[in-house]
Simulated scan of single mutants.
Amino acid sequence: MRRMGNLYDYFSAPDDPTALAAFGQGIEAAGLPMLPVKGIDPYVQLGQAESLLTGTSYDDVTALPRFNRLLSSPEDESRWLVTLTDGLRDALVAARPGGFTAVAETWSRIEEFGGDAPPHELTDFLNALADLAEEARTHPEPHRLYCLMSL
């Protein structure tokens, strides 16, 4: 993505303790699959995409127990680790092979993108995140999705 902003590393891990350990040592050093992006936050922007993908209202998505639950210390000032929902992981996988073109078109118009989100780039991001989700689900014990946010 070309937008400016915070850095977001979306990744999968078998469980919260493993994700938290990867947060400390580095996702790549932990050998976990990762999708780095700029400018697509896991709360408002990805939450809106989850709402579109699942047909669940945004308010109901944000009320889910694993929606952006903070795993790292709240005292950290420049890096945070949050959980993503299993519903998002599963919806990304289920949306294939039809693709994400229609979702990306609607998603690109949310206020939080400020009119600077080309739908084709959002489609590419959703496809890449779906690849990560697919890989997470193919493990004998399905992995979960996480996001490491950095200022």
Rank of each mutant, 00 (worst) to 15 (best):
A136S: 15
L32N: 13
E141M: 01
R96K: 09
A117N: 05
G99V: 08
F100C: 00
A91P: 03
R137P: 07
G39L: 06
H120C: 04
G99D: 07
T62Q: 10
V44F: 11
R89V: 09
A63R: 15
L81F: 07
I40D: 00
R144I: 02
R69D: 06
L53E: 05
L53W: 04
A128H: 12
E77V: 12
A91C: 04
I110W: 03
E75M: 07
N68V: 08
P65C: 01
G98M: 06
E121D: 10
K38G: 00
T83D: 06
D90P: 06
L122H: 07
T101H: 05
S57F: 04
L53I: 12
V82A: 08
W80S: 12
Y58N: 02
V37F: 07
P142D: 00
A130R: 07
R137N: 07
S78A: 06
G115I: 07
T83Q: 13
S51K: 12
A49F: 09
V93L: 09
K38F: 06
P42G: 13
G115H: 05
S78R: 13
E135P: 03
A133C: 11
E50H: 13
S51P: 10
L84S: 13
S78F: 09
T56N: 01
D41G: 15
G39P: 01
S57Q: 07
Q48S: 14
I110P: 00
L64E: 14
H139W: 11
A136W: 09
L132G: 06
V93W: 00
A91S: 11
E134Q: 15
M34P: 00
T123R: 13
A133R: 08
W107E: 02
T106C: 03
T101P: 00
L35P: 11
G98V: 01
L122S: 08
P119F: 09
L92E: 02
H139K: 12
H139E: 10
A133W: 03
S73H: 08
L46P: 03
E77A: 14
G47H: 06
D86G: 15
G39D: 03
F125I: 11
F125S: 01
P142R: 00
P33N: 07
P140E: 14
F125Q: 02
T123M: 05
E50T: 15
R66T: 10
L129R: 10
E50F: 06
G115A: 01
S72Q: 02
